[in-house]
Amino acid sequence: MKRKIRIYRKLFSSTFYLSAFTFGGGFVIIPLMKKKFVDDLRWLDEDEMLNITALAQSSPGAVAVNASILLGYRIAGISGALITVLGTILPPLLTISVISLFYTAFRDNIVVNAVLKGMQAGVAAVIVDVVIKLSGNIVKENSTASILVMIGAFVATFFFKINVIYIILACGCIGASKALIQAKKASKGGDIK
């Protein structure tokens, strides 16, 4: 029981802290989550983090909230999911409640804008760092199919602005059919022996 409470507390404080720093769109939380839950706490591995990202992206709602739910569920079931949702929505709820009282002053403040501009550059660096690491790992897998899927998905979303849902569905189907064909081949190979 004590152990459980410790895990709950850690889940809440981690997601609260990560959410408080998720500036500029849902994907920013992914590198932060990876650092915290994969590298520091070692509660899950990098592949699983990417699976969670894919599921979060293809479900309705905000990516950050969805990723938190999946992560909480993975670590501590439904109660874990409830705790991580709470941890993720409280920081924006509190920040906006306070800012809405004086939002024009906040919006027009030059120092606030300068700090945010600097932070934007920092966020961009954080994501480039993660993209380098993640794409490096995909290339290291040495699977031509994975590399082709990565390039294809990038071209589809960046140049052709194809809806993310279709890209995810297509790549999921490619992966599934490849695995099924391989499984079939393997079982046939077994028959000959």
Partner: peptide
Amino acid sequence: GLRPAVVALI
């Protein structure tokens, strides 16, 4: 199949 796609999306 999704993992490389997610890296591309990010």
